[in-house]
């Protein structure tokens, strides 16, 4: 079992490959890995309640073991309130991301 830190900076509205990182997170988790999905920049646009065809609730259903975090600065920059987040998303910050990045043996994927 490995520790994966998947950092998603993209959003499903701009890119034609919207589910890639969410599917990858689910697949890696299904194989027994410890998976964190850290949303940053426009990646946090899926955290707002009311997003249509949102891949986050689907990921939560498929792979409840995946920890989903959203960068506080990226949320604040976009006016997304912590009180208006999709269920299962935790507000995090860059210090916590660094802690994840320096974990011994962690596999890091930026997308």
């Amino acid at each position: 079992m490995a520790q994966y830190v998947l950092i998603e900076s993209r959003d499903p509205f701009e890119y034609g490959d919207p589910l890639y990182i969410y599917d990858l997170a689910g697949d890696l988790s299904a194989k027994g890995n410890d998976v964190t999905l850290f949303l940053v920049q426009n990646g946090v646009l899926t955290t707002r309640n009311g997003v249509k065809d949102n891949p986050l609730p689907k990921l939560r259903q498929k792979a409840p073991g995946v920890s989903v975090h959203a960068d506080d600065f990226s949320l604040r920059e976009r006016g997304i309130s912590a009180a208006n987040l999709v269920e299962g998303v935790s507000v995090s910050n860059i210090d916590s991301l660094v802690d994840l990045l320096v974990q011994d043996g962690a596999k890091i994927v930026w997308h």
Partner: peptide, 17 residues
């Protein structure tokens, strides 16, 4: 296949994405 991408990630130590 797409379903094997996770296996490929697991079989390498470092992912340069």
């Amino acid at each position: 296949g797409r379903a094997q991408v996770a296996d490929l990630f697991d079989s390498h130590d470092s992912i340069w994405h």
